[in-house]
């Protein structure tokens, strides 16, 4: 039995938790899926490898008040910290199983035709073995690595009760704001055109919101009718409004787990916008989200000496 499975099994057998939230192999290659184990028998399916991409903390606010064990990678642990900071969960109800994370892969990095032709795939060390019928191809993990993992500054969970170590090597940490600098080099007008083009495909399905562990509001502004913030006639203007408002709501909270980008059926990627706000929060207020469960949310507090250079 794998280490995650035996640990989950013992937690359930000892009655320490009602449910364990983790990963099991998915039906599609390279996509592990969430798994909820309520009994020791169901715990046998748990796995942990580099296909375990989803952020499972998205399921936790709806389990508020219940005793839950959850598997968290570095980024997931940081979103969990934000949920604790915002009192969406209590630390007492949780058993946190930390996963030392070498970075996860996403099949979105493969050309769609190639991915559809796959029958199975496995990750072995730093290689991904792609099998399509009798064909076997090896590609480096690096090629399929999810974007946030390339710049991840905290791959190890910041909170945990148990820790499952990794035996993979650690990556060199790239500049987290490289994508921001790249966009900022463009002319102002060009930046707006790029943003418009990026969101023009948005159909307002709110998959990004649903996938986001920090978009837990039971009444999201997008669902309100009085006032109606977006729609009902959907246009690029609404898409812009929605994405800018979402970015503002995530300012100082987003931990760059990448769930919104992976969830988008139209491939909209606004990660650099969230990164810009993360950078602004760091520069202006010296705050990095998701590190301290006791810290007040950055926009719920202030310092008299905060910069006010932009105010006349």
């Amino acid at each position: 039995m794998t280490e995650p499975a035996s640990l989950a099994r013992s937690l359930l057998e000892e009655g320490r938790v009602e449910v364990v939230v983790g990963y099991r192999p998915g039906t599609l290659p390279l996509r592990a899926r969430p798994h909820f184990a309520f009994s020791p028998e169901q715990a046998a399916q748990f796995i942990w490898d580099r296909t375990c991409t989803p952020d499972l903390t998205v399921y936790l606010p709806r389990l508020k008040g219940r005793r839950v064990a959850v598997f968290v990678k570095g980024c997931d642990a940081r979103s969990l910290v934000v949920l604790l900071q915002e009192r969406q969960l209590s630390r007492e109800q949780l058993v946190v199983i930390g996963l030392e994370c070498p970075g996860v892969v996403t099949p979105d990095k493969l050309p769609p035709e190639q991915y559809q032709a796959l029958t199975s795939a496995t990750v072995e060390g730093e290689q991904v073995l792609l099998r399509g019928g009798s064909q076997l191809e090896r590609v480096p993990v690096e090629q399929l690595l999810a974007d946030p993992c390339r710049t991840c500054q905290h791959p190890d969970p910041v909170i945990q009760d148990y820790l499952i170590p990794t035996n993979c090597g650690r990556r060199e940490r790239e500049d987290p704001y490289g994508v921001v600098a790249q966009f900022e080099r463009l002319e102002r007008e060009e930046r707006w055109v790029r943003l418009e083009r990026e969101v023009a495909d948005c159909i307002g399905c709110y998959a990004c919101r649903q996938a986001c562990p920090l978009c837990y509001c039971p009444d999201c502004f997008t669902d309100r009718f009085q006032p109606r913030w977006v729609g009902p006639i959907w246009s690029t203007s609404d898409a812009l409004f929605f994405h800018l408002a979402r970015a503002l709501h995530l300012a100082g909270r987003c931990v760059d787990c990448g769930a919104c980008v992976r969830a988008c059926p139209l491939g909209i990627d606004l990660r650099h916008v969230y990164k810009r706000l993360e950078q602004a929060v760091k520069e202006r207020f010296g705050y990095v989200p998701g590190l301290d469960p006791e810290a007040p949310p950055v926009l719920g507090t202030f310092r008299p000496e905060d910069p006010g250079d932009f105010i006349k």
């Binding site: 921001v180 966009f183 900022e184 102002r188 007008e189 060009e190 930046r191 707006w192 055109v193 790029r194 943003l195 800018l244 970015a247 503002l248 300012a251 100082g252 916008v273 810009r276 706000l277 602004a280 929060v281 202006r284 207020f285 950055v298 926009l299 719920g300 507090t301 202030f302 310092r303 008299p304 905060d306 910069p307 006010g308 932009f310 105010i311």
Partner: peptide, 23 residues
């Protein structure tokens, strides 16, 4: 402290609008 809280929030709005190319 209302204006202190506003200052943080509006600073981020300004940074966001600047970044995405609003005049």
């Amino acid at each position: 402290a209302g204006n202190y809280v506003a200052r943080r929030r509006l600073a981020l709005l300004k940074d966001l609008l600047d970044y995405v190319g609003m005049e």
